[in-house]
C-alpha cells in the first residue's frame, strides 16, 4: 500500500487522526467549558492576602497531596456540602505571564481535600501551630513541617503573632517564633476555601452511590460520636481529650462537658467560644459543619463518657429544643 511506503502520507495521516481526536476530546470541550461557565454570583473574589497565599500554596506544591474537588459520590460528602460544579472553577484564570491557570483540583488525597477547609478547620491559631509542625497538634500526621514560613526573634514586636511551639518541635531553634508574612497569607487562603452555597431555588446536584444506612435512623451509636469527634474536634482537643496547654483547653474533666449547663455546651459546639484569654478562639464548628441535633447528641454523649468523664447522657429532643432556642437568640443579636 502506498500509504505505508510513503513517509509523508503515513505521518500526515497519523498526525491528522491524532489532532482530530485531540480537537474533539480536549480542545473543543475545554473551549466550551471556558466560555459557558460563570462563577456563582455570591462567590466573592479572593482577598489580597488570600491571593498571595494561593501563590505560596502553588510554590510549595501542596497540590501533590491535597485535592480541591468534591466529587458527586457519597463518600466525598465528608469534604463538602454539595458536589463541585463547573461554576466553582470558572473564576480561576491564568496566574500570570509565566504560569498557567491553577485550578488545583489535584489527583492525590494523601492529605484531606481542601475545597471546604475554611468551614471545617479551626481558626488561625490552630492553623499556625499546625503549619509550623503538624505533629504538634495531630500526632499521626505525615504532612511536612513549614518552619521556613516563620520567623525567629529574640522577642516579639508589637504586631507579631507569636506561635507557641513546644520544645520538642523546635529542633534547637531558640527565641520566640512568630508567624511570617507567607504563613499568614497561606492561612488566609486556606480559610478562604469555602464552598459557595448555590442560589435559593436552584436544584443542587446530588451525591451518587449512596451508602445504605444499616442502622435505623434516629439512634446514632457511640461510634458515630467518636467518628464525629475525630473529624471535627480531635485536631485541637486531641484524641486523649487533654487539649494542648496554652492553645486548646482540655475536655477531660471540663466543667462545661460534665456540668449541667447544657445550653452553654451546645452553644459552644454550634457557635464557638472566646471567653478564656489563655486559649485560642474556637470557631463555630457546629454551624460550619451543619450539625443536626442527632450529631450534637452523639458528640455530647461521647465526650461525657470518655477519658474518665461522667456526665449525664442527653437525648435528641432536648438538644433540638436548645438548638432552636440558640438559633433564635443569635438571630436576634
Amino acid at each position: 500500500m502506498s500509504l505505508f511506503d510513503d513517509h509523508k502520507k503515513l505521518y500526515t495521516t497519523a498526525l491528522l487522526l491524532f489532532i482530530g481526536l485531540t480537537v474533539f476530546v480536549a480542545i473543543l470541550p475545554a473551549v466550551y467549558n471556558q466560555r459557558n461557565n460563570r462563577p456563582l454570583a455570591n462567590a466573592g473574589p479572593l482577598s489580597e492576602a488570600a491571593q498571595q497565599g494561593k501563590q505560596v500554596f502553588i510554590a510549595n506544591g501542596c497540590v501533590a497531596c491535597h485535592t480541591q474537588q468534591v466529587r458527586n459520590i457519597d463518600m466525598d460528602r465528608t469534604w463538602g456540602e454539595r458536589p463541585g460544579i463547573p461554576a466553582d472553577y470558572a473564576g480561576i484564570v491564568r496566574t500570570d505571564f509565566w504560569r498557567n491557570t491553577a485550578t488545583l483540583m489535584g489527583t492525590e488525597r494523601t492529605g484531606p481535600d481542601l475545597s471546604n477547609v475554611g468551614n471545617r478547620n479551626p481558626g488561625r491559631d490552630w492553623n499556625l501551630v499546625h503549619l509550623y509542625n503538624p505533629r504538634i497538634v495531630v500526632k499521626e500526621s505525615i504532612m511536612p513541617a513549614y518552619p521556613w514560613l516563620f520567623e525567629q526573634k529574640d522577642s516579639a514586636a508589637k504586631n507579631d503573632i507569636v506561635v507557641n511551639v513546644p520544645a520538642a518541635y523546635r529542633y534547637g531553634r531558640p527565641g520566640t517564633i512568630v508567624a511570617g508574612r507567607e504563613a499568614l497569607q497561606l492561612i488566609a487562603y486556606l480559610q478562604s476555601l469555602r464552598q459557595t452555597p448555590l442560589p435559593e431555588g436552584g436544584t443542587e446536584p446530588s451525591f451518587l452511590y449512596k451508602r445504605e444506612d444499616k442502622k435505623p435512623a434516629g439512634t446514632p451509636s457511640a461510634d458515630a460520636g467518636k467518628a464525629l469527634f475525630a473529624t471535627a474536634c480531635q485536631t485541637c482537643h486531641q484524641a486523649n481529650g487533654e487539649g494542648l496547654p496554652g492553645a486548646f483547653p482540655p475536655l477531660k474533666g471540663s466543667s462545661v462537658v460534665n456540668g449541667d449547663n447544657l445550653e452553654l455546651y451546645v452553644d459552644i459546639i454550634m457557635n464557638g467560644y472566646d471567653a478564656r484569654p489563655e486559649y485560642g478562639v474556637m470557631p463555630p464548628v457546629g454551624t460550619n459543619m451543619k450539625f443536626t441535633e442527632q450529631e450534637v447528641m452523639a458528640l455530647i454523649n461521647y465526650e461525657r463518657n470518655s477519658w474518665g468523664n461522667k456526665g449525664k447522657p442527653v437525648n435528641a429532643p432536648e438538644i433540638k429544643q436548645i438548638m432552636e432556642l440558640i438559633k433564635l437568640k443569635t438571630s436576634k443579636q
Partner: peptide, 12 residues
C-alpha cells in the same frame, strides 16, 4: 493559554 481557564485547564 487560549483554552486553559476554569475547567478548560482540567480537561487539557
Amino acid at each position: 493559554p487560549a483554552w486553559q481557564n476554569g475547567l478548560g485547564e482540567t480537561i487539557i
